[in-house]
């Protein structure tokens, strides 16, 4: 395939010249992944918005890397001029789950931050609207963290109608077919162990 990657290459070049420590990867056409140190994220987003014309914060989410004891924050920026998505990733420590807000750059980030605060328990300094959002009266650990045991929680709190005890662990079937190994942390939460 012979695609014109001029815009992509130029963007990568510009980012490289400004942020020397960034790990940049061209995933495919119009997808650039930039991995950065956590303190460089606000300057990078500001730079991308103001100088590289990435005006649109398309998405902002979080991944829980429980093995590394880290949260990964993922920012998706889109440029209407270049038709490129830049995915900025950074990792913060799980023990001290705190980050700075970017709501001064994009106002919609405030809502994303509220959601991430509720689902992962990350505190965004500077965002003063981190109150109750979607979940009502939640007093457990945030539900999207991977150390939160969903099945056990559902079993304890919600009545399970009899007749679904034969619910199969899909993961075992998939591993048998594909030959992939289940990691230890996943085995811990498997249905069979909970029975």
């Amino acid at each position: 395939m012979n695609k014109n990657l001029y815009n992509e290459n130029q963007t990568i070049e510009e980012i490289k010249n400004t942020f020397h420590t960034a790990e940049i990867k061209l995933q495919r056409e119009s997808r650039i992944i930039v991995k950065l140190r956590s303190d460089l994220i606000p300057p990078f987003l500001s730079y991308a918005k103001n100088y590289l014309a990435f005006n649109h914060l398309a998405h902002f989410s979080c991944v829980d890397w429980i093995e590394d004891n880290e949260f990964e924050l993922v920012y998706l920026l889109y440029s209407y001029e270049k038709n490129i998505v830049v995915i900025a990733k950074t990792r913060i420590s799980r023990d001290k789950a705190e980050f700075v807000t970017i709501k001064h750059l994009w106002r919609q980030a405030e809502t994303y931050e509220r959601e991430i605060h509720e689902m992962f328990g990350i505190n965004f300094t500077g965002n003063d609207r981190l109150n109750e959002f979607i979940l009502e009266d939640w007093d457990d650990i945030p539900p999207m963290r991977r150390d939160f045991n969903t099945i056990q929680f559902a079993k304890d709190n919600f009545y399970t109608r009899p007749g679904r005890e034969d619910a199969q662990d899909v993961r075992e079937t998939i591993t048998k077919k594909s030959g992939e190994k289940i990691p230890d942390f996943a085995k811990e939460f498997s249905v069979r162990n909970l029975k």
Binding site: T150, I151, F153
Partner: peptide, 19 residues
Amino acid sequence: TINGGMYWDSYNTIKALDR
């Protein structure tokens, strides 16, 4: 509403409406 359906292991949905 009967037995949770595909949300049987969800942390936030009830599984049997008649309760």
